[in-house]
Design a protein around this nucleic acid. Structure first.
Lengths: 217, 217
DNA sequence: AGGCCGACAAGACGGACCGTCTCGCCAATA
DNA sequence: TATTGGCGAGACGGTCCGTCTTGTCGGCCT
């Protein structure tokens, strides 16, 4: 027996390659892979994290990983998204909103301080850095990274700025997508590239400078 | 013969590991390695660029690379710095200064437009991205990347802002290292993470927002 | 109930690179 | 002229890649 293998596949025209039957997927293995991936990236770093290592740690066959994901980065991205969802469920929903007390400056400062703390959380740091780095060099993954991880948060900032605009605290003629970068991007760069101290005082200053400008009034 | 090998090294107490005799180094091989590294990163991308590949392309033994550099990233960093120096020599010195016409806004816009163009130069794009990405994940290399590549440019921006401050175009109480991030960081993030259009119009807007602030005057 | 299907764990497989090493070869030095 | 040490070349054992094979197991159709 054996021998006749692919030729026996009379049932299908051999069209779809990417996805096997998702309904038969083992959720137990999936979760074990997420846990193993996040643990390994935290322990030995992203470059030394290997598909074989993840499989072994998860008690899973390599093929199970290759069956559902296309790359190491892809596994980590989904693992990280899953981690995020689990943490959001654990915390309250309101942890992922921007407050509106009527004072934009104060509200933004609160949110940026929280972002600083979050980026320092060791559960986040290693995988988040790894994904950001991979996205810089791999445009495909980069776009996914931005749309799934960055974009939702940026949208919240834009929304809060729009409210401020309607309340007359931000100029009418301003492009909010650019405006939010004045404080979000410097924060991101300091964290990613270690270009300077990363503190609450720093983000407070950013908000002040961005709102009132560098030029004298 | 053979057999006695390390034990025959009576001359040295076996202390310094890192550097062989630099005076006997082949400059021809060094340059060939730089060229090969930059070419390969441009052609096949950073992850597929390999030490063996660089050695083969440069017509050089692998050991010659391992003798002088500690990693692929290290080779590329030096190659890129060398490329920068050669281009600076070719162009005039004044290409790497920030003009001072007395109008900060105008001067910064000119410089940021030039930066946009430079980041689009295909000779720069691939290696610069690769180094930035590696620096995000490898703190050691990251610090070198910042101090050798980023810092000199940031210093120029700080200098120009200081002149503006003395001319009364920028508030006295402002931390210039933070101030310059208001336009430099958003630019960097858009380029690195593809978070939005990357154009002259964009950088012009950044300068306006940063100088005059988001709040109504 | 029995048979079939497809994901699963395990791991063998050839191939790519790793980083180290050994080998003569050669130029500069002593 | 003899010594020294970097050099090109490439062999080496090792790791991990991505694919393929085998046998097991649980759900679904008949």
């Amino acid at each position: 027996m054996a021998t006749i293998r692919k030729s026996a596949r009379s049932t299908h025209p051999a069209a779809e390659r990417p996805h096997p039957d998702a309904t038969r997927r083992s959720q137990r293995s999936r979760q074990a892979i997420y846990d193993a991936a996040l643990a390994l990236v935290g322990e030995v770093g992203y470059p030394k994290t290997t598909i074989e290592g993840i499989a072994a740690r998860a008690g899973v066959g390599k093929q199970t990983i290759y069956r559902w994901w296309s790359s190491k980065a892809d596994v980590l991205l989904e693992a990280f998204l899953d981690l995020g969802e689990r943490l959001v469920e654990a915390a309250g929903e309101e942890a992922y909103t921007i407050p509106d007390t009527g004072d934009v400056a104060a509200d933004l400062k609160v949110v940026l301080r929280a972002t600083v703390d979050e980026l320092r959380d060791p559960r986040f740091e290693a995988p988040y850095r790894a994904l950001a780095a991979e996205g810089v060099v791999n445009e495909e993954l980069g776009r996914t990274f931005v749309s799934r991880l960055l974009e939702p948060s940026l949208q919240l900032h834009a929304d809060r700025l729009r409210a401020a605009q309607e309340a007359g605290q931000v100029r009418q003629d301003i492009d909010l997508r650019i405006a939010l970068e004045l404080f979000v991007s410097p924060l991101a760069q300091r964290w990613l590239q270690h270009t300077g101290p990363f503190s609450h005082a720093y983000t407070d200053t950013l908000v002040d400078y961005a709102l009132h400008g560098l030029a004298p009034r």
